[in-house]
């Protein structure tokens, strides 16, 4: 089983991203998935977590995610002391940043990847909504789901107009990560 942890702020769409990944893996990928937020009341702006679990077979384990294989950081200000807890050594940590090298020392136990999702979102959406950019980047970096499944999940979840824009974002995120 692969476990993915999403860091965002309330209202940034981290939970949506965790769900998109679940949809891509299960509805469009033939696997099984669970997606859930950090439980509790959602408050705009507050740091929140979301999780996705993906496996080849039905997922029975309902306990909390203890050892993440992938961590997605939608807002680099969320990297605070204690961030490393609950991440598998060698796990992939994907950060929305212009310069991922600055975290090389602090997060040396992990495989770090960076993407400037904010610029990408501004370019396509004209607004700094980074969840689908980070989702596309994770899909590209992890191979957890195919690009086709990732795009299909966008269309499953979103209304056509919004889906079109977000499809572009996912395409571009794939390009950026594969370069």
């Amino acid at each position: 089983m692969k476990e993915i942890r999403w860091h965002g702020r309330g209202g940034q769409g981290g939970f949506t991203a965790s769900r998109l990944l679940g949809i891509a893996a299960s509805v469009h990928g033939g696997k099984h998935a669970l997606a859930f937020p950090s439980f509790g009341p959602e408050r705009r702006g507050a740091p929140v977590l979301a999780f996705t679990k993906i496996d080849e077979t039905k997922i029975h384990d309902r306990s909390e995610v203890q050892e993440s294989d992938f961590v997605v950081v939608m807002d680099e200000t969320l990297i605070v002391p204690g961030f490393e807890k609950g991440i598998k050594p060698g796990a992939c940590v994907l950060i929305n940043t212009q310069d991922v090298s600055q975290y090389a020392e602090q997060l040396k136990d992990f495989e770090l990847k960076g993407i400037d999702a904010t610029s990408l979102a501004m370019e396509v959406l004209g607004r700094p909504i980074t969840n689908t950019a980070m989702y596309g980047a994770l899909a590209a970096a992890s191979g957890l789901v195919s690009k086709e499944a990732a795009i299909a999940s966008i269309h499953t979840e979103m209304k056509p107009k919004l889906a079109q824009l977000n499809e572009q974002i996912v395409e571009k995120a794939f390009e950026l990560m594969n370069n």
């Binding site: 299960s26 998935a33 997606a35 859930f36 439980f39 309902r62």
Partner: peptide, 12 residues
């Protein structure tokens, strides 16, 4: 159904 663990978890 268990609160959050089932109510708020998305699955197939």
């Amino acid at each position: 159904l268990d609160g959050f663990i089932l109510t708020h978890t998305y699955e197939l």
